[in-house]
Amino acid sequence: MSATISIEEASLSYGGEGGLLALADASLSVDRGEFVAVVGPSGCGKSSLLKLVSGLYPALKGRVSVNGEAVTGPLKIVGMAFQNPVMLPWRTTIENVLLPLEVVEPHRGQFRRRRAEYRGWAEALLGTVGLAGFGDKNPWELSGGMQQRASLCRALIHKPDLLLLDEPFAALDAFTREELWGVLQDLWQEHKFTVVLVTHDLREAVYLADRVYVVSSRPGRIIHTRDVSLARPRRLETTFEPGFVELVHELRDHISQARQAAA
């Protein structure tokens, strides 16, 4: 299962009416199982958009709905990962991955009983991201890239319909980042959850997404929408093809226009 998202003319302001307007009249809609990326200048309200979708922050006006229902509070099922992997240092890696199952319904009530089964899930997931055998290590014994892989596992362990990613690969070196694009694409193709990925990296957006939204400088508005119809699975070679490079250039133009408009 996966989720549909629809945002209609939504605004978000920190500090209410007259506060700091982060998003203005943003509209987008994401289909079940789609992978969309959001790009835009720094501080334009991309993270705020994710807070809107997850229900962590209410819209000032406009409509936000997921699976056809208006979002009024935290959605309770969403998987999230950030630039900072924020692992809990007093838990081992696998215990970190299991954390959502201790919290989310219906697993929280069954956690004790099904512990062995859940550990199996976590180990399998760690295996798919290349961390087989690292579950019992402490997170601080893992490299930054390995922690980010574990944080992806934590975001997916409870089989969420909706995955929200806020620059998850931004702090990694280019090789690890590109490798994890592949890992994420494989996981997504296998489980078909809906993904919203916020990123600064236009190649990353084009590599992963079915559609890319370009957001203007703050207050963020969606100034451009671009479908990416490159064949799947995309591979690293794809990024050198003319079609790919052209798309990246096109998006770059839109962003620099957005930044100039702000300056």
Partner: peptide, 25 residues
């Protein structure tokens, strides 16, 4: 860390859950 709170709240964690699982440790 605010990210950790967001991860947990987006899973439907109550304040007491966050306190028990993360805050106090």
């Amino acid at each position: 860390e605010p990210e950790l709170q967001e991860v947990l709240r987006s899973l439907g964690a109550r304040r007491l859950d966050i306190l028990r699982k993360v805050g106090i440790p």
